[in-house]
Design a protein around this nucleic acid. Sequence first.
DNA 1: CAGTATCCTTAGGGATACTG
DNA 2: CAGTATCCCTAAGGATACTG
Lengths: 149, 149
Amino acid sequence: MTEEHEFEFEFDIRQDPYNHMMKIIFSRWKPFILRAIDFDGDNPTYFSRFFKQLPITQKVLSQNLKAMEQDGLISRNIIPEIPPRVEYKLTDEGKSVIALLDLVYDWGWKDMKRKSMPIDPLGEMWHGYRERDEDIMYHPYKKLNTKDC
Amino acid sequence: MTEEHEFEFEFDIRQDPYNHMMKIIFSRWKPFILRAIDFDGDNPTYFSRFFKQLPITQKVLSQNLKAMEQDGLISRNIIPEIPPRVEYKLTDEGKSVIALLDLVYDWGWKDMKRKSMPIDPLGEMWHGYRERDEDIMYHPYKKLNTKDC
DNA sequence: CAGTATCCTTAGGGATACTG
DNA sequence: CAGTATCCCTAAGGATACTG
């Protein structure tokens, strides 16, 4: 409706790559979800698997997975078992964004260190800033209590 | 208050570098603001300058600049003239994030191309994907109408 | 297991007007 | 010129319950 009175084009933030990236990648949970799938390597990730590492609700996870599938970052594959399982994997496109996420993480990690902010250890393990502790990485996130922050 | 009943630590998204980055860098306008200041090179950027390129309101710009100053990304310097002007520059820390933003832009640009999405020309000029047109870059964003999208 | 369905809260931003 | 001050709105997420 407002468009009807515009005869001129303007800078449209919606058509800018930064905006695009913030929508498809840099929303609250997506970097974590991508990292979680990547962490499983060639093994597929299942729906329930995410809850072992991320305090996310089913609804929000579902929403995010759906969006990321539509954006071509992940693939969804239903395994006909009883009960049925659903595999999530990174597409080639999804894999290609992991390296970028690493750089983003690194910049943020250094910035937080510089400012003496506490940094969560799970992300540090994923990113090689801390030795991997399988007991933490493969178990529910609440287990992190056994380690200091 | 909820903390009082927690005896255990959990994965805390607020202490993760991804979350940190999304707060201090990847919010709606910050990449654009950083790029705009960077574009002016050694010349400082003034408050009113931003409106020539970005359809942002004074309130939101002010909020963002304040946050970015506190986060150490930009510096604010008042010039005692009548009327007073205020210079904004990138700090060394702010400069160091520009290269990262370039990579983010590039990934997004390629993704949008792959998907045949229209891309705003102003950002393309800033990032070298289109020849610089001083007439566009130095004038109010509405002037973009004179060029095709 | 892998999700929906509802209801609710909140941060971030937009519109507009005003000020030192 | 360089901002505040108000008011409003919406998208994204959280809490909780339910389902094939």
